[in-house]
């Protein structure tokens, strides 16, 4: 059973059970330091686990991140680069390592 925030990706991949919360990337199991909400989200997954008899339609939890939903528009834009500085360097290093391993037929 998967808990996620990227609905289109998980649905495209195809999984047996999916609990979707419409939150920014980072908090698929609920808002940080809000255990009651986190409990409800996990509980939605447990009910799905108990009740599903076939690959189930996505369960959508009722939570809204904020009244202002500009984060949905701004993610992956020039205004808010997804990876910057060190994070971008780490990503490039990981990609380079992958290319090298591939060249050596190690992956």
């Amino acid at each position: 059973m998967i808990f996620g925030t990227a609905r289109d990706i998980v649905e495209y991949v195809g999984v047996p059970r999916f609990v979707f919360t419409d939150f920014p990337l980072g908090n698929p199991c609920g808002r940080p330091f809000e255990p009651a909400m986190q409990r409800e989200i996990i509980e939605a997954g447990l009910r799905l686990l108990e009740n599903a008899t076939a690959p189930a339609p996505t369960i959508v939890t009722p939570y809204v991140w904020s009244e202002d939903d500009s984060w949905k528009r701004l993610i992956f834009t020039k205004e808010r680069p997804f990876l910057e500085g060190e994070a971008y360097e780490h990503w490039m290093q990981a990609k380079q390592k992958y290319r090298e391993l591939k060249k050596e037929n190690k992956i």
Partner: peptide
């Protein structure tokens, strides 16, 4: 992990992505 929306949220509470305490 750096692949999250750092402008909007944080990874300061492990239970928001790896729910060990809740479980």
């Amino acid at each position: 992990n750096e692949h999250y929306d750092r402008y909007t949220t944080n990874l300061d509470d492990v239970n928001s992505y790896c729910p060990v305490t809740r479980m």
